[in-house]
């Protein structure tokens, strides 16, 4: 059975692009449009999400909030979380690390780079 990856971004273009790249590499993809949507979908899933890819700036609940919420949950305390953001300042990366992200990719990115990053955690 294919591993499940959750993609969280308020940009439908990014969600489509990331989902396409992940599906081509054999992963199952679930999508969410913001942090709240992601939490709701993850809590309603019958099986585990193996990895989360999230944007930072999103309405309702941003990426930092989502990571904090997931890290507080015992089930997702160790789930790899990759931040995907156009913000490449030191502050954003440090804050991402502090809340518990596993790695940080800067947009725009190459699909091959994303797949390599995902494989680091799932292979």
């Amino acid at each position: 059975m294919a591993l499940k990856i959750m993609v969280v971004d308020d940009s439908p273009t990014v969600v489509k692009f990331v989902s396409f790249s992940l599906k081509k590499s054999g992963y199952d993809v679930i999508t969410a449009c913001d942090g709240m949507d992601a939490i709701e979908k993850i809590s309603n899933l019958s099986d585990d999400v193996s990895l989360v890819i999230t944007d930072l700036n999103m309405p309702n609940l941003d990426g930092y909030g989502l990571i904090e919420a997931l890290r507080q949950n015992q089930q997702h305390a160790d789930t790899p979380i990759i931040i995907l953001s156009s913000e490449d300042g030191d502050d954003d990366r440090e804050r991402g690390m502090d809340v518990g992200a596993s790695s940080y990719l800067v947009k725009p990115f190459k699909a091959s780079v994303l797949i390599t990053e995902v494989s680091k955690y799932l292979n």
Binding site: E87, D88, R93, M97, S103, Y104, V106, K107, P108, V113
Partner: peptide, 27 residues
Amino acid sequence: TRVYDPHADLFDKKTDQLAIDDMFARK
């Protein structure tokens, strides 16, 4: 509600990915 990264840029990146990966690896 407008949510955006004010520094979003298609070509001009201040930091390269390797430096970011290194920062996370050190942590």
